[in-house]
Amino acid sequence: MIRVQKEDFDVGAELKALIERARADGAGIGGIVTFTGVVREFSSEAGYRGGPRQLTAMTLEHYPGMTQRQLADIEADARKRWPIDASLIIHRYGRLEPGDNIVLVITASAHRQAAFEANEFLVDWLKTKAPFWKQECGPGGETWVAAKASDDQMAERWIRKPAAKRSAAE
């Protein structure tokens, strides 16, 4: 399930709802991995003007329509590669403040390895594929965050890595 929204989300409530949905589907879940991305206090652009740059806000722009499409594709991909019984991706957009939730990715499977791997895969791919753009706001004005080559490398490793099989994970 995917959701793109302006509103905040409640991690506990989302987790509970996902477990209930999976149980209703008759899934035998044994492990659930939850990743929450939040707005940092300081800019990721290290060394900016000689020191860390305190952020007052971050604005996330996205491409309505394509975002939903990309997230749905990435989720479908993960579910093809790993024996995932339930998954959820929520990505926020709009103006956020330090500490605010940005993204939630939950993956549930019979065994932990598939849940861990699929979760990492989803986060890596949404960072490099989902059409979102972060603009940081702090002293000195607004700056568009530059894409990181390290994020591309994190995503690319999944092209080679074989997915965990149901029997291999305990």
Binding site: L60, H91, F132, W144
Partner: peptide, 25 residues
């Protein structure tokens, strides 16, 4: 709304989006 390289064909009814590398997540 699908990523496209320079070789992809386009016509009058298409929606073409231009943007910087994405920075979500």
């Amino acid at each position: 709304q699908e990523y496209a390289g320079p070789e992809v064909q386009i016509g009058p009814n298409d929606e073409v989006a231009l943007f910087p590398p994405v920075t979500g997540g």
